[in-house]
């Protein structure tokens, strides 16, 4: 059965991308590579990585890319988001970060970046940079379970793969419920609702990535270039 590799947060680092591709080719029986955004960032020039994502080398997996928070900021600043600019970046890291981001990406890549999607739905899984709410929504192991459940409900999926926090984690909803009472002009109704069995999976960022096997619902958190730890990491 085909397995997926999920990566994110490369921020222009072609070396890390090549290392992951190499690892996937050698050992992992992976047939689909999802890149959940943040392929660019202000810290280095991103053109080489962007070119490679658009033209994979022979033997490499063809990446399926989404836009992430950094792409969204760049697209906004370059006028691809209506009247909105890179205000979130400007507010949090200042004008120099905005300039650095503009410098890091050749305008020739803008067309490709503008075509990237917000999310993929595969089987009963949603693959998103952040969440269905916004591209900024950072879900992590400490996020409120109520918030996570809301994000899962919005997508109507059983599993949500997210990357925005950069952390590798899994949160399974295992039980619970809620009572609801509605009164309107027709009368009163009670409703008991159980927590559905659903899961949010943080895939990591940069060298930290995730392999998922939809056939067995098993996933592994991995770190590129540290093969010795492999066995200890897997859990279902």
């Amino acid at each position: 059965m085909a397995r997926w590799a999920l990566i994110s947060g490369l921020r222009g680092d072609l070396e890390v991308y090549e290392a992951i591709q190499e690892e996937l080719r050698q050992t992992r029986r992976v047939d689909t590579l999802f890149v959940l955004g943040d392929v660019i960032g202000p810290a280095r020039n991103c053109d080489a990585l962007l070119s490679r994502l658009q033209q994979p080398r022979r033997g490499e997996l063809q990446p399926q890319c989404l836009f992430g928070w950094w792409e969204d900021q760049l697209l906004a600043e370059r006028g691809y988001r209506g009247g909105r600019r890179a205000d979130a970046l400007r507010l949090s890291q200042g004008e120099t970060a905005v300039d650095a981001l503009l410098q890091a990406v050749d305008p020739g890549h803008m067309g490709w970046l503008a075509e990237l999607q917000f999310g993929f739905i595969e089987l009963d899984c949603a693959l998103l940079h952040a969440s269905s709410a916004t591209v900024e929504d950072s879900l992590g192991p400490d996020s409120s379970p109520l918030l996570l459940l809301d994000r899962l409900t919005r997508m109507e999926v059983n599993r949500l793969f997210t990357a925005r926090s950069g952390q590798q984690f899994s949160i399974e909803l295992t039980g619970g419920g809620i009572e609801s009472q509605v009164r309107d002009l027709e009368g009163q109704r009670h409703q008991q609702q159980s927590v559905p069995k659903r899961q949010v999976i943080g895939i990591g960022a940069g060298v930290n990535y995730t392999i998922y096997d939809p056939g067995t619902d098993r996933f592994d958190f991995l770190t590129a270039g540290s093969r010795s730890q492999e066995r200890a990491r897997g859990f279902a």
């Binding site: 192991p141 379970p145 996570l148 952390q167 590798q168 984690f169 899994s170 949160i171 399974e172 909803l173 295992t174 943080g202 990591g204 930290n208 958190f221 770190t223 730890q229 200890a232 990491r233 859990f235």
Partner: peptide
């Protein structure tokens, strides 16, 4: 919930 964090 059951929370599991990556080895990282």
């Amino acid at each position: 919930v059951r929370v599991q964090e990556g080895v990282a």
